[in-house]
Design a binder for these strands. Structure first.
Lengths: 160, 160
DNA sequence: ATAAATAGAACCGATTTAATCCTGATTGGC
DNA sequence: GCCAATCAGGATTAAATCGGTTCTATTTAT
């Protein structure tokens, strides 16, 4: 049903939380707790986001993650591409070669591009700042709440 | 990777073929042969499209399918919605209720809408006519080629 | 009546995805 | 210098989804 993967969903949620305190260094566990998402999955998502240079990671004992750019400069399209791979509605679009058995015979070849481009533009037009949640700015600004409290045992299904 | 389902891909391909001869009645088998797609799957897709009133079906011995509207009036968004269900990038978008365990607490609630709307507009902005393939208009206009030739035994992977 | 076609449901297999776990590398604090 | 905390990356497993097939019933022209 043309749905985003759960990983992307999680990623946006986590990044949105981080954007509320742009300079703050967060550990993966802390973010998992704050968003009520399963810890291992959040950790995995952050690794991917770090590789894509959407967040910056600090290794070592007091390490963690922080946003690599301003929230307004991070588009949803970028996040999706980083987590789910490049956006291509069908395999033949955007110059991908060798994915289709009868590539050379395919009469639709190239005709998907307008659609693909339209969707791509839509995704690039929405930034993380556009999706940010005001609630976060006021709620739980103190780190002590979240830093040392134990992670929830039961992973909560945050979004279907 | 935000990819269309193969069913949608097939559907667009079949509809595009039908649009080349708008008044023509096609059997499911003929369309499968003409597009080199697996016959049972094309048949299944056409049933779905008929239910959504994108094509009209004629039952009985000399039955078949034909487009219910002009190609310019059938948008890709409509096709996707018919085949894959309503487009909703995340479960909470567009007023779907009861899909999320912590719905009322979810801070992102409502913030997906701009993105969802942008994508939806993109899909509605491209019609079947925009994607039509000129090749079809000239190739195999005669029905006799396709009507009686046996269906290909080996289903061809048309698009990954 | 018979043949040819769609309607619809049920079913299996394969692919994809979510989630977890483990091992290794890095860094700060004691 | 050692230890604990944290990120990096891959391997693995379990679950959900989707593609494809098949079967039976219904419709209609000949």
């Amino acid at each position: 049903m043309l749905r985003l993967s759960r990983m992307t969903d999680y990623s946006v949620l986590v990044l949105s939380r981080m954007a509320a305190q742009p300079e703050q260094l967060f550990t993966a566990a802390a973010l998992a707790h704050m968003t009520a998402l399963p810890a291992p999955t959040v950790a995995k998502a952050l690794k991917t986001l770090a590789r894509a240079n959407i967040v910056v990671s600090e290794r070592g004992s007091s390490g963690g993650y922080l946003l690599a750019h301003a929230a307004a400069d991070i588009t949803v399209g970028t996040i999706i591409a980083a987590v789910d791979g490049p956006v291509a509605l069908v395999a033949c679009a955007d110059g991908v070669e060798g994915q289709c058995a009868v590539e050379n015979l395919c009469p639709m070849r190239g005709h998907w591009d307008p659609l693909n481009q339209a969707v791509l533009n839509a995704l690039e037009s929405v930034s993380l700042a556009d999706m940010m949640v005001a609630d976060y700015a006021v709620a739980s600004t103190r780190q002590e709440d979240t830093q040392k409290t134990p992670i929830a045992k039961t992973p909560i299904e945050f979004r279907l």
